[in-house]
Amino acid sequence: MSGHGIRIEGLKKRYGSGDTAVEALKRVDMQVAPGEVVGLIGPSGSGKSTLLKCLGAVIDPTAGRMTLGDETIYEDGWKVRDLRALRRDKIGFVFQAPYLIPFLDVTDNVALLPMLAGVANSEARQRALDLLTALDVQHRAKAMPSRLSGGEQQRVAIARGLVNRPPVILADEPTAPLDSERAMAVIRILNEMARKYETAIIVVTHDEKIIPTFKRIYHIRDGVTHEETGEGRAFA
């Protein structure tokens, strides 16, 4: 693996203190290269969501180190001052449900992120259209989210996650609401986009049918990650 999109070392998260303290994450070590899609699986209560929130800079880890590209963003404390800008510019999110903004059309749903970062509207919309074209939903560019199918909505959500060219995308159960065919299509798209935009993608999933598609998987159990690799996992 050459270089790294995101590297996590010895990440811990403890809720509460004293006798009532709960160690949600005991030791998390992960590394995802640019252009790679890895799975993160584990039973309920294993710490998946806590890990995702730590990676998404939504909650503070208790200890450990996180590196995005060559930049250490967390080491016993956040190393970046503006976590909001970090989430906006360096981390893409794809959720279980698309959570598109219902009052913005497809283009503006995608273009909103670069606009928030100060990119001119026309340029932001052009970026959005390029991504929508790459994801084959450019024909719905002017449609409102409520007019899209579930698969189209998820592709738009992926475009939104990618539009600021973040080094890492966190996908939280992105195939959960989709049937097998659409779920596989989403995974295919994530792989294509990861390769095309050199983005590291972490997919949290319970979905048995897509697990075999990952080249590498991280199991998380009782707050500890275990890496699993296997031939034939690569998505064709």
Binding site: L86, R87, R88, D89, F93, Y99, I101, L112, L113, L116
Partner: peptide
Amino acid sequence: EIAVLKLIGTR
């Protein structure tokens, strides 16, 4: 939607 907006970096 507000939670999503905040998560993706809206001030």
